[in-house]
Amino acid sequence: MSSGTADAATGVGPAPTPERALARLVEAVLSLGPLLGVLPPVTVPAGPRAQALGPLLETVTRRLGSPAVAVAAGPGRPDPFTQVVADRLDLAALPVTPDGRVEGADRLADIVDDAEAADFGRFCARLDTKAGDGVPLRVYTAGRPGEGAVVLALAPGMPARLAERWIRELARTHYVVTWESRGLFADPGEPAPADYGVTAQAGDLLAAMDRAGATRAHVVGLCGGAVPAVTAAALHPDRITSLSLWHGDFDLGPDSPKTDHQRNLQALMAMACSDPGLAATIHETLCRSLGDNVPADLAHLVLYPYATAELFARYCALNSAVMGEDLRPRLAALDLPVLVVTSTDDHTAHPGGSAAVAAALPGAVSVVRPHGDHISVFRGEPELFEAVAGFLAEHPL
């Protein structure tokens, strides 16, 4: 997902104007912010155009306050993360004249300013706070306070930018609040949290609401975020007015329906949590094939928690807690309107889990789309927004 208004060049259709090509580069650098912030210095291959593109990219990253990205003249053999960065930047799309001049560069200052003004980082306000146990949290808000709060509980460990389309759409009519998971977005040197459990993650949701000044809210739980969303609603019924659970990653006891992906990932994360040395070995092995099954348009965000061995270990701790939490006692405690959405062809989080959750909640509204893989949730397809808008119209905040 690009920041601003357009995705990276696809190679389909007419070539963009030089100014638009530069704008896409700037948008790409902005969207890479979370990943570049945790990777070691990155050098991307640019072939014979490196001499022209290196200074240009240096200017862009400096003006944006982004980590620098170096440019190499050789083809290189980039690691998976460097490849993700290179693919996102798409330097080949920039028009360079035979004499080594980047077309449109005379307008670079204005292009950078315009892209930054339209970016997610300007659209949202960042409000730092601390959870009840002192863990630092990054909270993001958009829209106007007082318009009815909607809290986005993201997939644990994912950057807030992954929900950019949700945030932009919901902020048209509501005050939107979200946060980034404990321990995964800390400042350098910040110690790892002692507690990654689901109750702690649910407490982070409430801490985000408190920091944003939202006393009551509808909570949107995306993927694994559905589990702390349900937990927060069960523990704090006075704060959560309604829930919508989207392609949730649910555990409902020994007979819980799960895909092979869920079972394999849960076993792998359990091994990683059992031994830091083993976590590093698993991380190293995974890094060899990371990108093979990740859509290019979201890879720079989805792969964030895999960027380092330490991030990966913390990510495993967060998600092991979520994937192993038997949600049945929390469901039994709920007494509020709930929308449950899945699709028949979600091969990541078993649709049977969502069906079981809906069945356990008298009066829940269940929506099963005929198509829509798991990652499609984060692309924010129009039909998803129509569903949540209709639900919120029936259950106003």
Rank of each mutant, 00 (worst) to 15 (best):
Val38Gly: 12
Ala232Lys: 04
Val26Arg: 07
Asp346Ser: 10
Phe185Lys: 00
Pro370Ser: 09
Gly248Gln: 14
Asp114Val: 13
Asp79Trp: 05
Ala131Lys: 15
Ala309Tyr: 08
Val84Pro: 00
Gly132Leu: 11
Thr259Pro: 01
Val44Thr: 02
Ile375Gln: 05
Gly197Ser: 15
Glu164Val: 07
Ala131Arg: 13
Arg263Ala: 10
Ala360Leu: 12
Leu286Phe: 09
Asp326Leu: 12
Pro396Val: 11
Gly74Lys: 14
Ala86Ile: 01
Asp255Cys: 09
Leu94Gly: 03
Asp106Leu: 11
Arg239Gln: 03
Gly353Phe: 13
Glu19Lys: 13
Leu56Ser: 01
His347Arg: 15
Ile240Ser: 05
Ala73His: 10
Leu235Glu: 06
His347Asp: 12
Asp90His: 08
Tyr304Leu: 03
Ala23Asp: 09
Leu94Asn: 01
Leu243Ser: 02
Ala332Lys: 07
Arg172Cys: 03
Gly197Cys: 09
Arg172Val: 09
Val84Cys: 00
Ala332Phe: 04
His371Leu: 03
Glu58Val: 10
Ala6Asp: 09
Ala234Lys: 07
Pro98His: 08
Gly104Glu: 05
Ala23Thr: 08
Gly143Thr: 07
Gly277Met: 02
Asp87Thr: 03
Thr199Pro: 04
Gly65Tyr: 07
Met1Ala: 05
Ala202Met: 14
Ala317Thr: 00
Val302Trp: 05
Ala118His: 13
Ala192Asp: 15
Trp166Ser: 00
Ser289Gly: 12
Arg211Phe: 08
Met1Phe: 10
Gly132Trp: 11
Thr82Ala: 03
Tyr196Asn: 05
His371Thr: 11
Ala52His: 12
Phe391Cys: 03
Pro98Arg: 04
Val341Arg: 14
Ala93Asn: 06
Ala50His: 12
Ile282His: 06
Ala214Met: 13
Gly143Trp: 11
Ala356Thr: 13
Thr97Tyr: 07
Gly146Thr: 13
